[in-house]
Design a protein around this nucleic acid. Structure first.
Lengths: 134, 134
DNA sequence: TACTTTATTGATAACAATTACTAATAAGGA
DNA sequence: TCCTTATTAGTAATTGTTATCAATAAAGTA
């Protein structure tokens, strides 16, 4: 069943795969799987709360997450990678700061950090001191 | 010049128009304007820091903002409206909480509140007590 | 077992937001 | 005026995603 495959692929993925990432991984083993099936199952799985979904940011790609609970993410504006930010998702902090903003009833929030990820920074440093390779 | 027109339209818009909103408003007066021109000028204006840009959330539409400085937004999951949340954008708070997360160098952040906006809540209440109109 | 109903899938078309491309026009110097 | 640069309209192309739909698989039921 393709849904289980989709689930396994997200769970064993170290980072935050896009739908296309998941598709490419599965189809390397099961070349007959359809892209629509992957999209469909990713949607289902995240609706069921089995996997997490990270809204697109900057580039227009949704990413998925083996951690289903809410937590924060960093978006690298250089390579587009999505990384976990280890801060507990505390709705209380946010809701105390803004109990209700001009009639807007807040139920949740999304906090996305933008910056440069470790890998890209290291690459930058390498280029600064001694050029290894282009 | 169409760029000035685009700018004026965003500045006089009370809320947070999408590119298509801006296009529709301008083309009602200047029917010859092209959609590509509106998209191009909105991108230019936000790159120049003359207008703000609110990353798409939930639905895949970017919104623009007559306020160019960073501030927070609420996204209504019912009607898709984007509203301002009046809290000062304090990078210090956030950056003190996470000076640097596993090598990820944070330069800015985006905080989006999700919930139900005033108008949709009022509509809901109306339907709950006495139905006025469908 | 055979038969019917329900779920899941693959293939592909459709879609929406956005960008790329291009030739035409406008504007601004020399 | 001639030449160069900017800006534009119109349209095609791109991208991520969803809708459609017939084919297949699975599960129940008589």
């Amino acid at each position: 069943m393709q849904k289980a495959l989709t689930y396994e692929t997200v769970m064993s993925y170290p980072g935050h795969p896009s739908a296309d990432d998941v598709y490419r991984i599965i189809s390397s083993e099961h070349s007959s799987i359809s892209k629509a099936t992957v999209y469909r199952n990713l949607s289902l799985l995240s609706e069921e709360g089995k996997i997490g979904r990270v809204e697109s940011f900057g580039n227009g790609e949704v990413h998925y997450d083996h951690r289903p609970e809410k937590h924060y993410h960093g978006y690298c504006r250089k390579c587009g990678r999505v990384v976990d930010i280890e801060l507990s998702y505390d709705n209380g902090i946010i809701n105390n700061a803004f109990p209700m903003e001009d009639g807007f009833n807040i139920t949740s929030h999304e906090l996305i950090f933008e910056g440069i990820c470790k890998e890209c920074r290291e690459k930058e440093n390498d280029n600064g001191t001694e050029r290894i390779k282009d």
